[in-house]
Design a protein around this nucleic acid. Structure first.
Length: 269
DNA sequence: CTAATCACCTGAAGGC
DNA sequence: TGCCTTCAGGTGATTA
């Protein structure tokens, strides 16, 4: 479900809701949703900082860390007062705090995961820099494209060069840049590589401003939906008219995912 | 190295 | 109403 803008929205919300709180306990209700890789006792540790890289969320604790990935349907839902009677059957992990407030890890499809670790870098070594991080410059982005013979959609979905882009924003960025998703990364003309770099940043930043996109499951920790779905140009618009040229938006299966694009506005290289 | 397929899970939606 | 298939904001392992 969530890509960079949704995870960033969750991060900001959590900063307001749980920063500084002391953890009372963590209860996994589904064994695969919680992975304990640190020997430190989590009880009594405080949430000192909340970070993010790509679609990974970090709760930096006094001595260790929680790495959270929401995958497709994961939600972190905050409640001021824990009330077990209203516990949804999809709550997989309960993080409760000393002040009786609680954070539920709610995840219908059970793909998401919370990992309790000592060292974040050790677990996330394979994940590239965040798309909105300063290290992802135009030059960095172009260099990555130039050394890749993969198709551009697959390139954007892979998290190793730049992280945080998922299926929605890959399609939206390619549309804005006028690049066909089936193009070979290194073969995209120089000017179009720059256009794509700018488009990626634009769609991500705009969505952060709109508190993310809600298709069906996404909610922030207070239960609010995002608003960015109202600004899609191609995603989920297969068969409808292109907003730029009125040609019919195509939906195909590519790079293993539903892929939306305008055959007229987007050029294949 | 790239690409395709499956695996992990559940629920919603569409076809018949 | 019910059954069956397909699809869904993701990623990792495995196999060509």
């Amino acid at each position: 479900m969530p890509e960079l803008p949704e995870v960033e929205t969750v991060r900001r919300e959590l900063e307001m809701l749980i920063l500084g709180k002391e953890i009372k306990q963590i209860e996994p209700l589904w064994h695969r949703s919680y992975e304990e890789l640190s020997a430190q006792d989590v009880r009594g540790q405080k949430i000192e900082k909340i970070g993010r890289r790509g679609k990974y969320l970090f709760l930096h604790l006094s001595q260790s860390n929680l790495i959270i990935h929401l995958r497709m349907t994961g939600q972190l839902l905050y409640f001021e007062d824990a009330d077990m009677n209203e516990l949804s059957p999809y709550v997989r992990v309960i993080i409760s705090f000393k002040d009786h407030s609680v954070l539920y890890f709610h995840d219908v499809r059970k793909f998401g995961r919370i990992s309790y670790v000592d060292d974040i870098a050790k677990t996330l070594g394979h994940v590239g820099p965040d798309a909105l991080d300063d290290v992802v410059t135009e030059t960095y982005f172009k260099d990555c494209l130039n050394s890749s013979s993969a198709n551009i959609k697959g390139f954007l979905l892979a998290q190793k060069n730049v992280s945080g882009i998922g299926n929605i924003y890959a399609d939206e960025a390619l549309f804005l840049a006028g690049v066909d998703p089936r193009s070979t990364a290194k073969d995209i003309p120089e000017k179009k590589k720059i256009a794509l770099y700018n488009s990626v940043l634009l769609v991500l930043k705009r969505s952060v401003e709109n508190m993310g996109s809600t298709i069906s499951d996404y909610r922030d920790p207070s239960g609010n939906s995002g608003q960015n779905q109202n600004y899609f140009n191609v995603y989920s618009r297969g068969g409808l008219e292109c907003k730029k040229c009125s040609y019919k938006i195509e939906k195909i299966k590519h790079a293993g995912r539903g892929t939306h694009f305008c055959p007229k506005c987007q050029v294949k290289y």
